[in-house]
Nucleic acid binder design. Structure first.
Lengths: 164, 164
DNA sequence: GTCTGGTATGTTATAACATAACATATTGGA
DNA sequence: TCCAATATGTTATGTTATAACATACCAGAC
């Protein structure tokens, strides 16, 4: 139900799906944009813009400047392929390709993993609450920071760590 | 049910309430912290950290450096008097003094006004969704950007603007 | 073919947001 | 008085993001 820390097969499927959507909608998934997409897709945890810049720079003779990376990120975010996490200023792959809204993000404070979950009930509650005061929602940010399942267990049972 | 763009009476009531909580809990509401509290309280829309710095600087002979303002802001946020809006990096008064969690923030993209609403259903849905995948929440950010009631009407009926 | 207009990228500089590290002052007890 | 804790001041720098303008690339018109 989520993304980030995918297996390599998942990774390829996901990139392929983005390619298909771009093709179907005449969106230009250029080499640069594709490269940024791959970087984000392969990352274990959401990447900051400057991590993207560093990785792009390492793959080239000359280092890339911030606007180059930010424009590629903006493209990916604008079309719903990548989500920008407001509370950490980081970018993660969006698992719900094709939907034009985002679910809630569960962000692990220990390992950095971010998972996106959709819950129709959440959308309903948000819409209802906004309507109650005559507010017209345009964009929603729902981010929960805490401990993911694995890290929660690791913290509760620290003796499980090998070698100390 | 909300805050920001209070009347002057609301403003004083709110500051007084913070004072009382500080007194009751032996928290030091120093002149600096109080000044920042007032700035945020009086602002029509959430203030960025550097807006706070500028206003502090104007009220003194010498300009204040960022850490001074950030420390005061951190104090106010840590004790739940002020909320930091992640999606805009701005600070707004918290209306739900005494509760140690935040409701959802409705942020107007047109006038900047931010209102905080509590909804137990929202908390329930978030908790339930997190529990479903074994996630332990520590902090939640729920921010909805859009148009507030007044701005929604203004946009729908632009002929209402005087003088063109 | 080349002109033109749109889109994407490169380049330079700077704006906006935030904190590390260390110095000084203030306060309230032992 | 001295100490320790807390708060603030100061300097420098780190981090995130964008403005403004130059260049490259590509598709269709002529």
């Amino acid at each position: 139900m989520t993304r980030t820390a995918k297996t390599s097969g998942d990774h390829r499927d996901w990139v392929k799906k983005v390619e298909d959507i771009c093709e179907a909608n005449a969106l230009q998934l250029t080499p640069l944009r594709r490269q940024v997409l791959e970087l984000i897709s392969r990352a274990k945890a959401p990447l900051g813009a400057y991590a993207v810049i560093d990785q792009l720079s390492q793959s080239r003779a000359k280092s890339v400047a911030p606007p180059t990376a930010y424009r590629a990120l903006d493209f990916l975010v604008d079309h719903g392929f990548v989500v920008k996490i407001a509370s950490t200023n980081a970018y993660a792959p969006c698992d719900h390709l094709g939907h034009h809204h985002h679910g809630m993000l569960l962000i692990c404070n220990r390992c950095g993993r971010a998972d996106e979950i959709e819950n129709p009930k959440l959308d309903a509650v948000l819409a209802e609450t906004a309507a109650r005061i005559g507010f017209r929602p345009q964009r929603q940010v729902v981010e929960i920071e805490g401990l993911c399942g694995a890290c929660g267990e690791a913290v509760a049972a620290p003796q499980a760590l090998p070698n100390g």
